[in-house]
Design a protein around this nucleic acid. Structure first.
Lengths: 230, 230
DNA sequence: CCCACTTCTTGAACACGTTCAACTCTTCCT
DNA sequence: AGGAAGAGTTGAACGTGTTCAAGAAGTGGG
């Protein structure tokens, strides 16, 4: 069956296979949440969903792919949760800090899970790698959030730097995530402290780029980043 | 048997268990080199070494521990290979570039292997994580190399920054490694280009810290890095 | 309605990392 | 020498992610 809707996309909601697909995914996500990624077996997922193990593999090439889906969900939630901040706050520092803190908030329930996620993401061969081609849509969407952070703020910067900044802020977020994954403090207090200190620092650094002597180096840095991008 | 030598260290060369330990390790490293980490099974290692699977686990808690040993070996080789540069070159830029390039050279045969290594290292629970307590000796030794890069050079810097710099350069190396792992260009040309461009940039950045307005921010950055360290 | 064809589903089988109770070998005290 | 305690060694067994040949269910043309 191949139901084509007006949007040109296969109507996945009604096709039987897609129902199974979603059943498997939702069951997997629930089990991941309830007992962690490591302790959730493919057999348990299949069992709980009332299908066979092989069927799960028919729709999801591996356990990692199920995690991938989980990750996408997180990102969606972050984008949603960040809306109020982007809509109301106009100053750069609270805008950026808010977006980063929101990421911590959204991800809080999955801190234990994050280790595994991160481990998988670090493998350059994994589709979850933030630098992989497969995760480009997710990454673009994430960078887009930071573009809005920059564009909607009172930040005054040279145009070329301003154009590059969202990607740099995305890298900053990767750094925060890296720290967060290793953060064992209660309520990830240290990660919050990191954000509180780092964001004003970023702000001051950006203001420094107006100093003539600094400008040249800044341009070189932007150039370097661009050269290593694709 | 507990043979105590004059150095106060157990004489591991003669004790029977230690012979087995080394046999297993050397066999594992050879197989890793010959056919990659993923395709080398614990059964194959045990088989090739002429021992049982359980015996391998008696000495090495997991397959990862064998990789850990492999990684330590790499670091030793790097430290050794870097000696001539540290001994002859006095200017900061070629010193740093040389040390980083040497890392690429030493690691070149293991580029395929590096993905797995990196994946494991990224897991915060892994003893291979560069931030873990178990890898502190290896990390300290690595930072020490960069301390020598700084101390033996003509670099003129404020004392507090100079004290912190080796650790920052270690972070730079982590960045290079991250890029290198994902680098699919021939002869990892892009990684070399990154070093060639990044090192002079670091040099210029360090010189900038002499400008009064920049100094304050630099101090804050150093303070931030220190605050997130332990 | 029947037949080919695709899509979907099954569960046994595989290979792997890891564990463990049982066994053998070594050391060393009496 | 005897023998107990420890060190070293074994391989079958377990649980895991993943594969695959076989079959079931749905689809569409004649």
């Amino acid at each position: 069956m191949e139901v084509i809707t007006l949007t040109g996309v296969t109507d996945s909601a009604t096709a039987k296979g897609e129902q199974t697909r979603e059943l498997i995914l939702s069951t997997a996500l629930r089990l991941f949440r309830e007992q962690g990624y490591g302790k959730t077996t493919m057999r348990a997922i299949a069992n709980e969903a009332g299908v066979s193990v092989g069927n799960a593999y028919y729709y999801y090439g591996s356990k990692d792919h199920l995690m991938q889906a989980y990750y996408d969900l997180l990102q969606d939630q972050h984008r949603e949760a960040v809306e109020p901040i982007l809509a109301t706050e106009k100053a750069f520092v609270p805008r950026l800090a808010g977006v980063l803190r929101t990421w911590l908030d959204v991800s809080a329930p999955y801190h234990e899970f994050a280790g595994t996620l991160f481990k998988t993401a670090a493998d350059p061969r994994s589709p979850l790698s933030p630098f992989s081609e497969e995760s480009r849509p997710a990454r673009d969407a994430s960078v887009e959030v930071f573009r809005r952070v920059v564009d909607g703020s009172d930040l005054k910067l040279a145009a070329d730097l301003k154009a590059e900044l969202p990607e740099l802020l995305w890298l900053l977020q990767m750094g925060v995530v890296l720290f967060w994954v290793h953060d064992q403090s209660e309520d990830v207090r240290r990660s919050r402290a990191l954000i509180d200190r780092a964001v004003p620092l970023v702000d001051r650094l950006l203001r420094l780029t107006r100093i003539p002597g600094v400008r040249g180096v800044t341009n070189d840095i932007v150039g370097l980043i661009n050269s290593i991008k694709p």
